[in-house]
Amino acid sequence: MSIISIRQVSFRYPKQDAPALSNVSLDIFPGELLALIGGDRAGKTTLCHMLNGLIPNLIRGELAGEIIIDGKPSSSYPQGGISRIVGLSLQDPESQLFTATVEEEVAFGPENLSIPPEEIDRRVTWALEVMGIENLRKKSPSALSGGQKQRLAIASVLSMLPKVIVLDEPLGMLDPRGRRDLIEILSRLAKEKGISVVISESRIDEFIEICDRVAIMHNGSLISSGSPSDAIASSDTLKTYGIEPPRLQILSELMISENLISQKQSFLGERRANEVLKSLIDREKGGVV
C-alpha cells in the first residue's frame, strides 16, 4: 500500500500560461528511496510541495486530479496536519531555520504537535543522532556550515516522526564530502528506519546505486518511473529531458557498442561498473593463461 498516491494531477500557478504539472500519477511506498530527477522547469519543486500538502493548502492555483496522503485527500487535512505524515525540507535551508539553537529548531515541530516535553526531548536526541549532529545541539543554526544546516533542516522534520521525508534539491550547496555524508545518511534512513525518502535532484550520478526507484520528470510530466535501469533508458534520452547522464553510463554504452561488454552487463554506477569490469579483466587474464 502506498503512503502517498497522486492520481492524474495537473496544476497551474496563478498568472502562468503553462501548467507546472500535467497529468502526473505517482505513488510513494513505505521505506523506499525515490529519486525524482529532472532539469530546470521539470516540475520537481511543485511536486515536492504537493507531496506534503503545501499545494493546495498554502500555495493556491488551478488543481485537477487526486492527492491522497495516508488514505485521505490532502485538502481534507487541517493546517499543519500533514506534517505528522510527510516532512519536507525546502531548497534553501536558510529560510527554514528560524530559531536560536539547534535543539530549539528540532523541538519546534513536536511542540506544535503538542507532544509532552519528555517525549520531545527523546525525539530531539534521536533526530540529532540519526543526522549525526548531536554534538551541535547547543550551537546557533546560523553558525553551521552548509552541510550541517541541511542536516539540521532534515532533523527538524524527522523529530515529527513522519513516514515520508521529501527533500527538494538537498545537495546543491554542499561540497563533495558533505554530499557523500548526506547521501549515506539518507540511504540508512530508508533502509534501517523504514522512512520513505524522496530526493529531488537535477543529477542522478550520486545516488543511482542507493535509490530503489527513479522517477524522471520533464516539462511538468512524469516521463518514466521504475528501477534505475528501467527508468533510465539511454544517455541520449536523458539529455533530451535536460538531465546530464551519469558519466559511467556513457562509458557503458560505448563499451557495449564496441562489443567489449554485453547488453546484460550494462552499468550506471560505480559499484556495478567495478563488478562488470573486474569480471571482464578476470576473463581476459584467464584467457591469457
Partner: peptide
C-alpha cells in the same frame, strides 16, 4: 583535500 575524484578517474585507478 576532501575532493571526490570523478567516477571515471576512480574506476581507472581501480582497474
Amino acid at each position: 583535500y576532501g575532493l571526490d575524484p570523478p567516477p571515471l578517474t576512480k574506476l581507472a585507478n581501480e582497474l
